[in-house]
Amino acid sequence: MVQNIILIVEDDPDIRELTSLYLGKKGYEVFIAENGLQALEIVNKEKPHLILLDIVLPGMKGFELCEKIRELTDVPILFLSSKRDSIDKIKGLEVGGDDYITKPFDFAELEARVRANLRRNRLMASNEHKKKRVLTYGHLSIDLDSYEVFVDGKLVSLYAKELQLLLLLVNNPNQVFSADQLYDQIWGIDSYGDLKTVLVHISKLRRKIEVNPSKPVLIQTVRGFGYKFNA
């Protein structure tokens, strides 16, 4: 089982060390930071799964640091503070915090909050992954929700008809379509134009999604019949 990584950002050495020792004994991999700059370095390098963040820090304050961390990651952030005012709790949530724990705290309660936030984050990530509909064929990925196309992870810009043509072929893998059929499906029977339009769009599409457009692998020509998407 992969260890959850926790970053503790706390300037009080006693609280920092005791919290680190307790969570370490509970099986977490713990990193500590005394200030905002150290914390940002660890976030970038170690990719923690959860962050315990003090509000009162030297230099960069906790609220400001939380906003900067949110630009890098969406992992749970639990504020640690001796302030019990509701205004501070509200501020902590507004800047991107997920929970607020007042000092002095019970270590067992702290770990329960840690476990709950880690579990909630895993469930959200799992649900988001399930909701996202992505088709992948080798180096080509198509997001069916956003209608974005990626080649080797890079976004490729397709015109509307190119995308419609690609989706028609992808949704009917290995089915051969004649140029007439493609024209009727994409441009419509009553549209004005000729079959060269299909050839031109197939050629443009290949240049954008094929590794070697002169030797297409994904959109193949079936001589004498038409085109198919090779799944």
Rank of each mutant, 00 (worst) to 15 (best):
S81G: 05
A112V: 01
I90C: 00
A125K: 15
Y100W: 13
I90H: 03
F107R: 09
F105Y: 15
E111D: 14
R122A: 06
I90W: 03
Y100R: 03
R120C: 01
S86C: 03
K89Q: 15
G92N: 05
R120H: 06
K89P: 04
V114C: 14
K89M: 15
V114Q: 15
N117L: 07
L80G: 03
F105N: 13
G96H: 09
F79H: 06
D74Q: 07
D88Q: 13
L78N: 05
L118I: 03
V95H: 13
L110I: 02
G97S: 01
R122F: 04
K130A: 08
D88W: 08
K130D: 06
P104W: 01
E109Q: 07
E128G: 00
D88C: 05
E94I: 01
A125S: 12
L80Q: 07
E128P: 00
E111C: 08
S86L: 12
R119P: 00
S126Y: 15
S126R: 09
A112K: 01
G96P: 07
I77Q: 15
P104N: 10
S126C: 01
K89L: 10
N117S: 06
I90P: 00
F79E: 13
R120V: 05
F107L: 14
L118D: 13
M124T: 03
D85C: 01
M124S: 10
A125C: 04
D88Y: 10
K103Y: 13
N127M: 15
K103C: 15
L118K: 07
E128R: 08
L118R: 12
M124I: 04
E109C: 01
K103E: 15
D88T: 05
G97N: 03
D85G: 11
E111N: 15
L80P: 05
S126V: 00
P104D: 11
S82I: 00
R113D: 13
S82Q: 04
V114T: 12
R113P: 02
I90Q: 07
M124A: 10
K83T: 11
L118A: 11
D98K: 02
N117G: 01
S86T: 14
L110A: 04
A112R: 00
R115K: 13
I87C: 02
S81P: 02
K103M: 15
R84V: 00
F105M: 09
K130I: 09
R113M: 07
E128W: 11
H129A: 10
L110M: 04
A112N: 14
F79V: 08
V75P: 07
K91P: 02
K83L: 13
E128I: 10
V75W: 01
N127G: 06
K83S: 05
R113G: 09
L110W: 00
G97H: 03
G97M: 02
E94S: 08
S82W: 00
I90T: 12
R115T: 07
P76M: 03
L93Y: 15
R115I: 08
R120I: 06
K103A: 14
L123F: 11
T102Y: 07
N117K: 12
K103F: 12
